[in-house]
């Protein structure tokens, strides 16, 4: 009933307890209150996808959620992908295929695709492009990003078949 709230949010496995303004968006909470600046703010109205994070496993736009709505929830941001200095396979594929130039859209791309590949492990190029429709990139023309996604999917398939 007030304009501030105490919340507890688990981000990348660590639980943070903070008092926030109820109007605080989730992306500002992550960046400003927690210092997790890997998640980027692009348009702040749900059009660009740069702020995509995973809440309870689902890829969502963190500029369109309030921090108070994340109370008690588990979130993964781009900082949660790598193991120490070792990139995860998706990040590695972006690196190898030049899937980023300026890098601004990359955190949102990675979080969207990480969810997508769990649901559709062997996507077609068309499915990849549709999954990426909510993430805007102004540098790459998308081709290198699509290549990276298809490469990591092919690798995962090959590893599965080898087992």
């Amino acid at each position: 009933m007030s304009q501030t709230r105490s919340i507890a949010v688990t981000v990348n496995g660590r639980t943070y307890e903070k008092t926030v303004e109820t109007r605080r968006t989730l992306v500002d909470f992550l960046r400003v209150d927690l210092g997790l600046t890997g998640t980027h703010i692009g348009c702040e109205h749900g059009a660009c996808g740069a702020c995509t994070v995973r809440v309870e496993g689902e890829a969502v736009r963190s500029c369109l959620m309030l921090a108070v709505q994340a109370n008690g929830k588990s979130i993964v941001t781009v900082e949660g992908l790598a193991q120490g200095n070792a990139l995860n396979p998706l990040q590695q594929a972006f690196w190898e295929k030049n899937g980023l130039q300026c890098g601004f859209c990359t955190p949102g791309m990675l979080m969207t695709i990480s969810e997508f590949l769990e649901e559709v492990p062997s996507p077609t190029e068309e499915e990849v492009r549709e999954a990426l429709s909510g993430n805007v990139c102004r540098c790459t023309g998308y081709q290198a990003i699509v290549d990276a996604v298809l490469q990591v999917a092919a690798q995962a398939r090959a590893e599965k078949e080898a087992v």
Binding site: G46, G49, V60, R61, L64, T112, A131, G134
Partner: peptide
């Protein structure tokens, strides 16, 4: 309808 991230919410 929108994109997968918007349909999630």
């Amino acid at each position: 309808v929108g994109h997968r991230q918007t349909r999630a919410r």
